[in-house]
Computed example of a mutant assay.
Amino acid sequence: MKNKKTIIITSVLCMLPEILSVILYKRLPEQIPVHWNSAGEINGYLPKAMAAFGMPFVFLLLNFLASIRLLYDPRWRGQSRALRVIGIWMVPLISLVMIPATLLMSLGVKFPIMSFSFYLTGIVLIITGNYLPKSRRNYVMGVRLPWTLDNPDNWNKTNRLAGHMMVAGGLLLLVSGYLHLTAAFHGVSVLIFIVVLIVVIPTIYSFALYKKEQDTGKL
């Protein structure tokens, strides 16, 4: 019952921007900017009907999928309580902030979308990185690989490394957002670069631990 109530509340929050969409609809341009490149330039649009009324349903679907995975994980006791809360409420928060910001920007309201994205992602990474090493094996959060799920020592070491990298990456994003340094290495987004490193390096490290254990067992 508690899980169902949480899903209902978060779903309602995801749909609240529909109210603003109804209020602003006649004033919105026919094409709404919804995507920006690493330089902060608009490179993606949606028809206003899709942007105003379709985007909340996209967040609704994302919220439903995220909530089902988090709330009905057979190993939910292994989840960090703090990360569980963040995971449940993150999608509704983004919906409540980003959809109104997108609609208002289409009407000429100034909003530092790139800096805000960097700040939000940086804060989430820092918080996640602090709590990630405290998560025990589960099927939703953490570095979930065949080797980490099979071996608690591999899980702990890999997620500890990933946590440190998330904190470092989050701090770098905060600095980049403040200095408006959104691109690095020939235009590649700083955000994408950091995310790739956070994914790739712990994966390689985890596999190396697994191979070391296998080789040791053969001796």
Rank of each mutant, 00 (worst) to 15 (best):
T182Y: 15
R84I: 01
P17W: 11
T216F: 15
N156W: 06
Y178L: 14
V34N: 05
K134T: 14
D73E: 04
W155M: 06
E18F: 11
S106Q: 00
Q214E: 14
K4N: 13
N43A: 10
L70Q: 09
I23K: 10
C14H: 09
T6Q: 14
V175C: 03
N138W: 09
P133W: 08
K2T: 13
V140Y: 05
N130S: 07
D73V: 05
S189G: 14
F64E: 08
H35P: 07
S189F: 06
V190H: 03
V97L: 15
W36E: 03
M141Y: 02
R69F: 13
G177F: 07
L209C: 12
P92H: 13
G142Q: 09
E18G: 10
K26F: 02
I127C: 09
A162Y: 05
L145T: 14
A162P: 07
Y131C: 05
F111N: 02
I42V: 15
G44R: 06
T148Y: 13
I8E: 05
N156G: 00
L103I: 05
I7T: 15
S176G: 10
I88R: 12
L219R: 12
T182K: 03
N156R: 15
V195Q: 02
L62S: 00
N159E: 04
G78F: 11
S106F: 07
L20W: 07
M98D: 02
Y25K: 07
L171F: 14
W155K: 06
L70E: 01
I204L: 15
I9K: 13
P202L: 03
K2P: 10
V196P: 00
G163H: 06
I23G: 01
A184E: 06
L120R: 00
S67R: 08
K212D: 09
Y45G: 08
Q79C: 00
V12Q: 10
M50A: 14
L103M: 10
M98R: 01
F111Y: 14
A52F: 11
P112W: 10
G217I: 06
G44L: 06
A101Q: 08
K48S: 06
P33K: 04
G163C: 03
Y45A: 04
L20Q: 10
N159V: 10
G87D: 01
K134P: 00
V200M: 12
R144G: 07
P74Q: 02
V195G: 04
H35T: 06
G163T: 11
E213P: 03
T203A: 14
I198D: 01
L145Y: 03
A39D: 11
W155F: 08
T121Y: 01
V91Y: 06
L107V: 07
P29N: 09
A51S: 11
L173C: 03
T203L: 13
A49K: 15
V199H: 03
S117C: 14
T6M: 14
V188N: 05
Q31Y: 01
V124G: 01
L161A: 04
I86F: 14
P17M: 11
V109K: 12
R144S: 02
S38G: 15
V109L: 13
L179P: 05
G122V: 09
K157W: 04
K218C: 03
T216C: 05
V196F: 15
N63Y: 05
N37D: 15
L28E: 02
G40M: 06
K157T: 08
Y45E: 06
N156C: 01
I8V: 13
R136S: 14
V34E: 00
Y205A: 02
P17Q: 08
L62D: 00
I204S: 11
R136G: 15
L83H: 04
F57M: 11
L171R: 02
F116C: 04
Y25I: 09
